Computed example of a mutant assay.
Amino acid sequence: MLVDLHEFSQQIQQRKEYIDNCLENLLKKEDTYPPVIHQAMRYAVFNGGKRLRPIMVLEGHRLAGGNPESVSTIACAMEMIHSYSLVHDDLPVMDDDDYRRGQLTCHRVFGEATAILTGDALLTEAFVLMSGSTDLAAQNPLRLLQVIREIAQAAGSEGMIGGQLIDLDAENKAINREELEGLHSLKTGALFKASLRAGAILGEMDDQGLTALGQYAHHFGLAFQITDDILDVDGDQFVLGKPVGSDAKNMKSTYTSLFGLDGARQLARQCVDRCHDSLAGFGTEADFLRDLATFTLHRTV
């Protein structure tokens, strides 16, 4: 599928700006007491993120026939969870990164202890927002409860946290493709899947559609991770906003270390093809998701 990269970049930017405006209104102001933690929370969230997970929440709801704006709080909560994970991921005891998206990481600005608390606060605030979505609760409290449960599971020990632990344990070890896919299905794919399904569940999509979106998100997460690995070898650090080669520095098994650059690129294309296959039951209303998968192959950040 051919994608006009410039036009599609503008579509993503429009959605990103909408999410940023929502986050601006939902996050507590920097002078909220105690101010340091709220300054750090805003610093962690407003650092140039792509907002793909909240965009997926909105898109899942739109595909189910709903008004995306009605799930903006859930979308913002997903971004807070993602932001918290990055704050903790950058810590010296984890990946020990000094820069993310061209800015000093949270612990380099506010100190390690405050960075830990910042991640904790963002995760907690995400569930405050979701549980306080009174309009969604009034419409269908059981579906909102299902969404909160799925998001919690995706972020927890059998999802993102579990994947992160496996990733740490795999440093300085050789792992195979199956193990690598399992790792990233948890660490990266779980939140994509929860995001897309959350919006669709709140839009009362049927089980067949939810299964298809879950499959899409799984393959999208792998394609996204593979391109991440490629960029860590072949990317421009001035565009990425962080030094390349961090995976090699941390002795991590990646798709590029297992299959080389050309092999990794081929695997990414296969994952994108499977994304498209997953959406076979949808019509043109799913073209944004189709284009998003294809766009992933060409991303530079």
Rank of each mutant, 00 (worst) to 15 (best):
D273A: 14
I74D: 11
L168D: 00
G156S: 05
P243S: 03
Q270A: 10
S131H: 14
E7S: 13
L289T: 04
Y43N: 11
A113W: 00
L210P: 14
I81L: 15
D97H: 03
G163A: 05
M130L: 13
E179W: 01
Q146Y: 00
I175N: 06
L145G: 02
F110N: 09
K187V: 01
F192H: 06
E7P: 05
H276F: 14
L240K: 01
A268T: 04
S85T: 07
Q266P: 01
K242R: 14
R149G: 01
T114L: 15
F127E: 01
D229P: 15
L27D: 12
Q270D: 15
K29F: 03
M251L: 12
S72E: 09
K173Y: 08
Y99W: 15
Q215K: 15
S253V: 06
D120F: 13
K173W: 06
L144N: 08
L58G: 09
A198V: 00
E158D: 10
A126H: 03
I151Q: 09
L222H: 08
L52H: 00
P54I: 05
D98K: 05
L142Y: 12
R274F: 05
F259S: 04
D120N: 15
R177V: 00
Q266N: 05
H184M: 03
F295P: 06
D169Y: 13
R149V: 00
L289P: 08
H219C: 15
G203C: 07
L129V: 06
V109F: 06
S246V: 11
E24M: 12
G156H: 09
H107K: 02
I81R: 12
T105M: 12
I116A: 10
G260P: 13
D96Y: 10
L63C: 01
T105I: 03
Y18I: 09
M205P: 08
H184D: 05
A174N: 11
F288V: 09
T73Q: 10
K187W: 00
T227A: 01
E17I: 02
G102K: 07
G245H: 04
G263R: 06
S83M: 11
A286T: 02
K16S: 10
D20I: 03
L196H: 04
L292V: 09
N250E: 04
R274C: 07
S133F: 09
Q13V: 06
A44R: 12
G60A: 04
A126S: 10
H218G: 00
L117H: 02
D120I: 05
D236M: 14
G263P: 10
S70Y: 09
A155T: 06
L196E: 00
M1Y: 11
V233R: 11
